[in-house]
């Protein structure tokens, strides 16, 4: 399983070189691309938006400090998220909040599909076509995408962090398990619950 950490744009070595040469547009590009995601994951660990903002600021500072010795064995994205999750956990511990993600609770909710099946496990209320059957089609539907993004924000903390890192950022399950200190099975359960809910949100949107 390979992940394209560069999002298919500028090769990362080139981006790092531009940053080291203090190219402001390279830095802004990186900030625009990652700031909101970093914030999303920070707030899922910290549950306080003020602390999350601070941790993300610190993450960018630590990123720059570490950049001259960054050996690019991981992607920039993974490097950033590693700094972030380490700092957020330290901060959470200091603030006497739940110390790790695995201990956070609040999301063993029941499946949103619970009423959709008959006793034999057959569909009673089957999914129907959306009229946006590809990613391009869905991306072109601004309001559907807004509904999807706001549903993502409302997911329970751990589910939100996992979807952000897996689906939005495209990190591998191994990387996400390491960053969030989750077992592989647990990570998959969280991803599953999150994706199941997000699909239902789109379904409701398209049903009108």
């Amino acid at each position: 399983m390979t992940v394209d950490g560069t999002s298919g744009r500028v090769p990362e070595t080139e981006l790092v070189a531009r940053l080291l040469a203090k190219d402001e547009s390279a830095f802004l590009e990186l900030v625009n691309r990652h700031h909101s995601g970093l914030l999303r994951v920070a707030s899922s660990i910290l549950r306080s938006s003020a602390s999350a903002e601070e941790i993300v600021q610190e993450t960018w500072q630590a990123f720059l400090e570490g950049l001259p010795s960054f050996e690019q064995r991981s992607s920039i994205k993974t490097f950033l998220y590693r700094i972030l999750t380490n700092r957020a956990r330290t901060r959470a511990f200091r603030d006497q909040r739940t110390s790790t993600m695995s201990e956070l609770e609040s999301d063993d909710d029941e499946s949103p599909l619970v009423d959709r099946f008959g006793t034999a496990g057959n569909w009673l209320a089957p999914p129907t076509a959306w009229g946006a059957e590809t990613a391009d089609g869905l991306l072109a539907r601004r309001q559907a995408m807004d509904a999807l993004q706001s549903a993502l924000e409302k997911l329970p903390e751990r589910q939100r962090a996992v979807v952000q890192l897996r689906d939005v950022e495209g990190l591998s399950s191994e990387e996400v398990c390491e960053l969030l200190e989750l077992t592989e099975v647990h990570q998959r359960v969280l991803l599953h619950r999150a994706r199941t809910k997000l699909r239902v949100v789109l379904e409701e949107y398209f049903r009108g």
Binding site: V31, N32, R33, H34, H35, S36, G37, W123, P126, P127, T128, A129, W130, A132, E133, T134, A135, G137, L138, L139, M145, L148, Q149, L152, V163, D167, V168, G170, R195, T196, L198, R199, L202, E203
Partner: peptide
Amino acid sequence: ICFTYLRQLRVASRALARAPAPKP
């Protein structure tokens, strides 16, 4: 029906990957 279901899961996930990130 299940084919549609699985496709919708995939489509949502891929669209999230490509949606522009909100700017700071």
